[in-house]
Simulated scan of single mutants.
Amino acid sequence: MTSEIVSTEAGDARITWRAAKKARLVLAVGHGAGGGIEARDLQGLAETLPGEGVTVALVEQPWRVAGKKVAPAPRTLDVGWRGVWGVVAAKGVPVVAGGRSAGARVACRTARELGAVGVLALSFPLHPPGKPEKSRAAELLGAGVPTLVVQGANDPFGKPGEFPEGEFGMVEVPFGDHGFAVPKRCGVTQEMTVTVITDAVAAWIEGIGECRTAQDC
């Protein structure tokens, strides 16, 4: 992996690259509000997808690079994401915008504007825990590009069955919570869970790689 600092209007962001030898697509993926790029699902994608011809760009938002503990407002997250897009798009291949939790919301809000050919939404926070009336479904439904949601079956921010109908794919991670952690008693290991995620994303992204622009998809 290689890393670079990118100056944005929200401060310095960092991109950690895991390059494919002959990339046909870039997956730019951001972290959530409660953690960084060390999340097991993000690391699993970075380890797996380059072998499928997909360069992975793990994006750390400026607040995280600066060592702050609390994420800023959504509009500031969007500013940071926009600031790195020119770098990830400069590879000359289509770019899928991705993220986990808050990062998934950012990807959905900005996908069409930035020219992403798809959105990967990991643990999309459909609503705050225990408050289904405060739905963020409009962000997901408004992405405007092919979208895949990967959601834990026991995610308190929205179980798969709570999502509205829409033009997006859904992959359920058995027993998974918001961080895709699974209880020991369920008989499923964390390694197995990561494999479910990476296999599903690789299969979905195979079709996205045929796109040359967002309109083609």
Rank of each mutant, 00 (worst) to 15 (best):
I197V: 15
S3R: 09
G130L: 12
Q190H: 10
L122Y: 01
A33N: 09
D155N: 09
V96C: 01
A89W: 07
G36I: 06
V29I: 15
P160L: 10
V150G: 03
T48N: 05
A10D: 09
G34T: 11
V26Q: 07
L126N: 08
F157R: 05
V117T: 13
C217S: 03
H127T: 14
D41C: 06
E162H: 15
G166K: 10
P94N: 03
G86Y: 09
V79M: 15
K184Q: 14
S123D: 11
T195K: 15
A111E: 01
R100G: 14
P128V: 07
V201A: 12
R14P: 00
A19H: 11
T198G: 07
L140Q: 12
F175L: 00
E38Q: 01
G51F: 08
G144L: 05
A107G: 10
E139W: 14
G67C: 06
G103N: 09
E165S: 02
A73M: 11
K159T: 14
A214S: 11
C186Y: 08
G44V: 00
V70Q: 11
G169Y: 09
A57D: 02
E167D: 11
A73D: 15
G30T: 12
T8F: 14
A89I: 04
W81Q: 08
K131W: 01
I208D: 03
G115R: 11
R75M: 08
E206W: 06
E9Q: 05
P183D: 11
V59P: 06
D199S: 12
E60P: 04
L58Y: 10
K159V: 15
A73G: 03
E133Q: 07
A66R: 05
E52V: 02
G92H: 07
T48R: 13
E162R: 14
S123V: 05
L25P: 03
V26P: 03
V26R: 06
D41H: 15
V54Y: 01
R82E: 14
E9H: 02
Q151R: 12
V56N: 10
A143F: 13
A13P: 03
A200H: 13
C186S: 15
D199G: 05
P156R: 01
G130N: 14
W204R: 12
E47V: 08
A214W: 13
E191L: 13
G209E: 00
G179P: 02
P125S: 05
L140T: 09
W17K: 04
V26L: 04
T147I: 11
A20G: 10
E47Q: 14
M1L: 11
T147L: 02
P129S: 07
D78A: 15
G142S: 07
G176P: 12
I15T: 08
V88G: 06
E52I: 08
V29T: 13
V173T: 08
